[in-house]
Design a protein around this nucleic acid. Structure first.
Lengths: 209, 209
DNA sequence: CCCTTTACATACAACACTGTCTGTATATAT
DNA sequence: ATATATACAGACAGTGTTGTATGTAAAGGG
């Protein structure tokens, strides 16, 4: 009956997979540990061995995809030679991450549409607030640099540009994750993003009709 | 013990108020009818008299603010003489609604951050999908009209402009409702919105440096 | 080869919440 | 004035879920 070390890790991963499935299916709060265990082909005993309770299982599920998230989303924008190009590249990377990594997408979808931001869940989701703040300050800095380089179009203030791009980014992810990604939608968003960032930049005369 | 008709309606409203409070406090799923009853100063008997169960209480809570929503958000954009101005007016009206009506804001906040989009909840929140679709088609139509009138800037396609504005609108509401509105944020969003819609419009030459 | 620890499965008690049923005082219709 | 329906309060059993406690077979170290 006793499993080897690697078999144990395998069950742990199966439990995490099952948690994702069940959470997506019926939501985090109604998901019983028994249902998750059955989905994983084990009993609740196995879950309680690997995790203290549902809360920690939830946190572990997030941690599993948090690494990719972190590296892509918190990359600083300060190094870019062209600040507006830097913002665009960063935003495109974010889209790329979600378009490519189905696992990340699924977990993020659970976070957005399948759990309540309350009690202990709020702690587990605190990194999301951090991320938003970091995104906001990054945008702020980039647009300030753009303004200093006279790159920012006259109808955009630093603040309104930063706010607008931030709203676009989170709205995009939310709208998208309400259903699921498909390649066509991803392309539409990339196009919208390019046009949006382009509209921040001061026009090079001509180009129009 | 028996209350008059108007007293009964008063308790019904108190129950709905209590539901909002408790839902916001601990989330929809963990909110017990007993807790809500206590908050309202009644017993579960009263709740079960006015509503069949928690699900219908939740729906009734939404219905209470749905009217305002409906009239403002589903106003057609087709009538506008200037399509881009029509879009801007509509979007500003939406901001206005949320900035002015604390009750609407609170309920929407519950919907966004305090419940899971699953099972019977999905039915109760179906109007939200309708709303998004209607918003999308409205934008699409408006930008098609703008393109036909040669008003749309050359770097924006109809589709990318519509997608971008839609993402901005929902991202704005989501980001905003994660906390609560304050007047300063509202003004920043209005500014961003004006600039965004302005960037859709074809430049009138000059204006730049 | 034995002993301890691991990696679970199984069993059990406790609780919170739900839906329903009954009780009841009073508004309201006749 | 009487009868009936109303607007609840209180009591009830039933259920699903949780945490823990115990059992156990095999892995891995000495």
């Amino acid at each position: 009956m006793r499993r080897t070390k690697s078999e144990s890790e395998e069950t742990r991963q199966r439990i995490l997979d099952a948690a994702e499935t069940v959470f997506l299916d019926i939501g985090v709060s109604r998901a019983s540990l028994d249902r998750i265990a059955t989905e994983a082909g084990v009993t609740r005993g196995a879950i309680y061995w690997h995790f203290a309770n549902k809360q920690e299982l939830f946190s572990a599920m997030i941690e599993r995809v948090h690494g990719l998230h972190q590296t892509v989303l918190t990359r600083s924008l300060l190094g870019a030679v062209d600040p507006l190009q830097g913002v665009l590249d960063w935003a495109l990377d974010v889209i790329e991450l979600f378009a490519a990594e189905a696992h990340t997408r699924q977990v993020y979808r659970i976070i957005v549409t399948r759990c309540e931001y309350v009690g202990e869940m709020q702690d587990a989701l605190e990194w999301q607030s951090d991320l938003h703040e970091r995104m906001a300050t990054n945008f702020q800095n980039a647009f300030e640099a753009a303004a200093a380089a006279k790159q920012l179009a006259p109808d955009w203030s630093v603040k309104s540009a930063a706010t607008t791009l931030e709203c676009f980014m989170s709205g995009m992810l939310h709208n998208w994750l309400r259903y699921d990604f498909d390649a066509e939608v991803a392309e539409a968003l990339r196009a919208g993003l390019r046009s949006l960032v382009g509209s921040f930049r001061v026009r090079e005369a001509a180009a129009g009709a």
